[in-house]
Design a protein around this nucleic acid. Structure first.
Length: 584
DNA sequence: GCCGTTTTCGGCCCGACTGTTTTCAGTCG
């Protein structure tokens, strides 16, 4: 439950509207009203600008899903920090009821029933009532329902929110590889937020193609690492694994794999758009087929391309399927040509054993060359980051000799530059003096410490670095760590405006625990013409392969290869750096 | 509560699974 603060961010505002939606639903308000609040919340989540700025402009109602009523509520929250409507609602419906919706299998109708009939308002009271058999006498309830609720409460205590993509992805790949070995399985793919490559995922959604689903489902729920079967049917099953991850598997015949994969990939909002479009074209779209509404005849699709083609659209990349304008763009033929992993030609931010890396400069350069990269920047930590063995000015100058030696040895297989990941210190100054920075081929400036500074202070600190003419790239701009640490409380509109002015590039750090910038801000930056740089921050050669997570984030941000420095050829990169040096 | 080259009022996606029932409501994605 969000606590009331006087300064609202896009996220806290979105949470407030989601809370309102939950409470209205428990209260029994017409479903479309609750959906409207959730839609508005999604719109705020997807917004790359500060809502305070939009409110100042008076253009709130131009946001999708925000009309007069919700715009007024946003304004009230932003100006007074309170919302009369929510306060009155909270007097009617206890706020703590919203927590009960977190329990798997428990929705607003049941929560409302428990509250009205038994005055249950929180988890403890619900648990006691279930344990003492008080729930089973209510309509639609029985002993099994009580068991399910208790299991749901226990599962809630075990789980801790969403899983970082970097953890979910490899596990899902193992699961898919195993599924593909099962007899009768002709294909298996990740779906859901996993396939859309969101930075965190809820449940793992997995789809398999097989004529006979039963044996596949049976094998799935009987896997030795399954600790609980949440559901088990012929087309859909869901389980909890020993590692606490939840997964659900759909099995459909190969001839229907296209509609099934499209359906299971989502997002929900993207699917709603497509189904609306289908209805306009005389089809009802489901995971099984496109059904003509006039004669019920079916058009089955083995591939997703066929599904989109039937709707008059080009195939839409999964990373775009968030209902952020992609269906409209597909219709208009203006989908971007998204960046791919193969477009990456350079790594501009990585570490060697001169600071906290695990490999030598030679090993890093050779590893990069082996992966087809044409240019690598060794950017070890600067002096004040003692914990990472940051380089003194003297060691930095010694490192140049080794880089030159490795360059001579490897010849023109790869270009090696000397850079640095320079600390932006708590006072906003950089960790090396300007004359030292001027000697470097490329400078990445990053925040690592004092991330908890007040908004204005930490924003000004980052802007100081952006304005330093020696800085080329801002590394992982917010400093967030998934899932544990929120980034700095930056005024991102001001940061982006400063970046536009200085011509500095912003990084999408590809490490799955960072993915910083995130998709929303990366999209906004690209729209503003700010050059992006996608880097793995590798501390060993195998980390170069983490690039796929950074590329996926860029794809979610609608980014094309031209907008990313790492995709330029060596001459263009060197030219860009030269221009920046000349402007100093 | 939002929204409109089929509508400014009347719509607002589709199906599987479960537990309670005896034909269906609730939940989920």
């Amino acid at each position: 439950m969000p606590k009331l603060t006087t300064r609202y961010t896009n996220q806290s505002l979105a949470e407030t509207f989601r809370l309102i939606a939950d409470l209205l639903e428990i209260k029994g308000e017409v479903i479309y009203k609750t959906l409207a609040y959730r839609k508005a919340a999604d719109s705020l989540t997807n917004l790359g600008r500060d809502i305070n700025e939009v409110a100042k402009e008076g253009t709130l109602t131009e946001l999708p899903g925000v009309g007069k009523a919700i715009a007024e509520k946003i304004s009230e929250l932003l100006t007074t920090g309170k919302l009369d409507f929510l306060n009155k609602l909270a007097e009617e419906v206890p706020l703590s009821l919203a927590d009960l919706l977190q329990i798997q299998g428990l929705g607003p109708k049941k929560v409302g029933l428990f509250w009205r009939e038994l005055s249950i308002t929180n988890l403890d009271e619900l648990k006691t009532s279930a344990e003492t058999g008080k729930l089973r006498h209510l309509p639609g309830m029985g002993a099994k329902s009580e068991e399910k609720i208790l299991a749901g409460i226990a599962a809630l205590a075990r789980r801790s929110g969403r899983t970082p993509l970097g953890i979910a992805w490899p596990f899902a790949q193992d699961l898919l590889a195993w599924l593909r070995t099962l007899p009768g399985v002709t294909a298996a793919e990740a779906a859901g937020s996993l396939r859309r490559m969101r930075d965190t995922v809820g449940d793992l959604d997995i789809l398999a193609a097989a004529e006979d689903s039963e044996p596949v489902m049976q094998a799935f729920v009987e896997r030795p690492d399954v600790i609980e079967i949440i559901g088990h049917g012929p087309t859909k099953s869901s389980v909890e694994f020993a590692n606490r991850l939840h997964a659900q598997l759909w099995v459909h015949p190969p001839a229907r794999f296209g509609t099934a994969l499209q359906y299971a990939t989502g997002s929900k909002d993207h699917n709603v758009r497509l189904r609306e479009l289908a209805l306009n074209l005389g089809y009802s779209l489901s995971e099984h087929a496109l059904k003509r509404t006039n004669d019920e005849s079916e058009l089955t699709c083995a591939t997703e391309e066929e599904v989109y083609a039937a709707l008059g659209l080009p195939w839409v990349a999964p990373e775009l399927r968030e209902d952020r304008g992609e269906v409209q763009a597909a219709k208009a033929g203006t989908l971007p040509t998204l960046i791919t992993v193969n477009d990456r030609l350079a790594e501009l931010h990585c570490h060697s054993n001169w600071s906290d890396g695990k490999a030598t400069i030679r090993e890093m350069a050779a590893g990069a060359a082996q992966r087809g990269l044409k240019l690598i920047v060794i950017s070890d930590h600067s002096q004040s980051l003692g914990i990472a063995n940051g380089l003194s000015v003297e060691r930095l100058q010694q490192q140049r000799a080794e880089i030159d030696a490795v360059q001579a040895e490897l010849g023109n297989s790869i270009r090696i530059l000397q850079g640095s990941e320079v600390e932006i210190k708590a006072d906003g100054t950089l960790d090396y003096p300007d004359d030292v920075l001027a000697e470097l081929d490329l400078v990445v400036a990053s925040l690592h410490t004092s991330l908890g500074q007040p908004r204005q202070q930490v924003t000004q600190r980052l802007i100081s670095a952006i304005q330093n003419p020696h800085v080329d790239i801002i590394g992982h701009p917010t400093g967030r760590m998934i899932p544990d640490r929120e980034g700095a409380d930056l005024d991102m509109d001001a940061v982006l405006a400063a970046a536009v002015k200085s011509g500095v590039a912003l990084e999408i750090n590809a490490h799955p625990s960072r993915l910083d910038l995130n998709d929303i801000y990366a999209r906004r930056a690209a729209e503003l013409g700010i050059p992006l740089s996608i880097n793995t921050d590798a501390h060993a050669p195998q980390h170069f392969d983490l690039i796929s997570f950074g590329i996926a984030t860029a794809r979610r941000a609608w980014v094309t290869p031209e907008q990313v420095i790492n995709c330029w050829d060596v001459d263009k990169i060197m030219g860009w750096l030269e221009n920046r040096r000349r402007d100093v």
